[in-house]
Design a protein around this nucleic acid. Structure first.
Lengths: 206, 206, 206, 206
DNA sequence: GATGAATGAGCATTCATTCAT
DNA sequence: CATGAATGAATGCTCATTCAT
């Protein structure tokens, strides 16, 4: 988890393309996904309708571009810690702590990602999303497999690992973003890391 | 967990009101929340626009009514098992198993609930939703508190319990409804119950 | 050919539907087919956008409805004379004279029909158009066949008769509507009837 | 009528200008006149928007340029036969046969000309079109006048001759291009030549 | 001659909602 | 309780055209 956040291109957008993306996030924040209209985005970015369509093709194209860029930034957030992780536990810790921290630092972006995910997954850019996810989880699944073989990680149905690892954290983040709980996600990092590790690790009692 | 599903009023709707609700679910299933238009719902229900407005006031009213009714049905699904639960573990088991089973039996309804939750929580019927949730989790939190005092359950930040219990299950259900994993949720019930229990229970190692 | 024109429903439109059709003709007359916009039609008809869509579904629906209604009125124009026609020559005379006369009395409508025909023939209402044409020409082809058998009409490739009969008249009408010639079509009725008859009839020289 | 078609510059366009014109025809063929957009034409010609505007000024300029060039090619098609025509009948034969043959060999171009004629006639290049037509029909009318004086051709209203000559052929070509009849136009050349000649010539019976 | 990013007026269409019957 | 014609604000999008390089 970085001590200082890596500068996002959307925090101080320069190109007309980045201005439009930054504007889209702000519009989403104020009015939700359905209120994120072309006209609003354009106005806030001081751009023209034509320019928006020139860069993104259509509304879905803009949403997908924004989603995929945020996914990159989110993944990059945990990268430094992940690279230094020596044990399976360290990997789980880096992964979850990074996720909770990113959401805490980027509530608007996180809210957008939860809202837009299904739309992107069903649209024309589904392939790009799938590729990124494979990239992200492919590596992780390899590490878990090694853990299973070394006896540290329990052998469970393959398709449940991801849910066991991030489900509780994601649920909490959604609740926090919706105002149902008040503690910043990373506050409870130890709880969620510990729970995830208990869920997948071999315990003395096993 | 019931062996046979309690008959939902929406499975064979009789009143014009129930016909409209059943039609709404079908429309949502085909076209998503934004494709669930008044005209489509009306046509499929063989009803009139005026009738729809008579029963629900407006579109949000219909969505809220549907959501709240499904929430009731979902809660009722685990009720029999919950009432027979003798220990905290049994409660966790009844809760999670019931949730996974309900989603598996009602994929369209579950998808609707995930999609509509935030809209309902932000709308005019937010209070009704809050009340139902308090009802549901108030009882549960009481049981957990007793578990903490008896030394069976770990003492954790209050606002994390719900996520630790249902987070992984919910995450898996969302993935299943989106087609990202293929095993029916209840298939992995033991995994998720076990993980939830490990997350919140006091283990020998503690 | 009627001495007095049968009253068209579009000359003094009463229903909101007919008002929209009459307005569409006027808009076409001023700005052409591409300038015949929904907003213009609506405004001139003192109607609302929603009402237009309620009645016609979409722009193409309105164009097709207008075209088919005008086709009916055009066909009705020659009907009385056609019914009294005793000989093949009389039929040709009634047909051509009626056509030229209708165009002369309805220049705007005729211009619209020439402009919209291909659009209607390619659209969703192609079947309705085809049916009307079959109705119109089916009867005519029967009469010609009888004429061929009685030795009055020349035997020619079936698919050329229609062009031989109305081609010259249509060409002249187009030219008149475009301002390339100045004499009202019906002025030359005898010329075009005579030419059509010479084109298809058996002459002493044959 | 040429045995082998004169090579059109648009069949294997070299200059960027000709590439754009050839592209425009192809776009029209696929999407109609309104689907013939600057962007589509540009892309198919592997050219740039700026280049298109450099060559033609604007969209109407391109349409007019294409129309007038095709008109030239069409007129050139009958030229050899016309020059060898010795009698009025030969002139009619050359004219109509050439027209039918050109349309059969250039269906896309013919369709474009029917669709674009009124636009060109109403636009900034109306004068150029008028000039070409005068050139074409001025000569023809002279020949007809001579025929009238020699007693071979009937004296008819001046403005009806053109329609009597090409009306039926044009009508048939339109029907063929629209798929309403199946025989290639030149197949019926004798029928249409004969009909045109019967329409304007003095017959024994007169 | 050539390029293509940027512009913005204008278009067809959707859809929740009202209200007189 | 039921009906459905009418409303019109709002939306996503197209496309000819300009202009700085």
């Amino acid at each position: 988890m970085p001590k200082t956040s890596p500068q996002s291109r959307l925090d101080a957008p320069q190109s007309s393309r980045d201005k439009l993306l930054a504007s889209a996030i702000a519009c989403f924040d104020e009015n939700g996904l359905s209120g994120m209209t072309i006209e609003q985005i354009r106005r806030r970015a001081n751009s023209s309708i034509g320019s928006l369509y020139h860069h993104f093709g259509n509304r879905d194209g803009l949403i997908a571009a924004l989603f995929l860029q945020l996914l990159d930034e989110q993944m990059a957030w945990s990268q430094p810690a992940l690279e230094q992780a020596a044990t399976p536990y360290d990997v789980v810790d880096a992964l979850i702590r990074g996720y909770l921290d990113w959401v805490g630092h980027h509530p608007r972006e996180a809210r957008f990602m939860y809202a837009a995910r299904s739309e992107v997954a069903a649209g024309a850019n589904a392939a790009a999303l799938k590729e990124k996810n494979k990239q992200r989880f492919g590596h992780l699944m390899g590490l878990l497999k090694a853990g299973v073989e070394s006896g540290e990680v329990r052998s469970l149905p393959r398709e449940t690992y991801a849910s066991l690892l991030v489900g509780a954290s994601e649920n909490y983040c959604r609740a926090w973003l919706a105002g149902r709980v008040s503690g910043e996600p990373v506050t409870h990092a130890s709880v969620f890391v510990d729970a995830a590790w208990r869920s997948i690790s071999v315990s003395p009692a096993d």
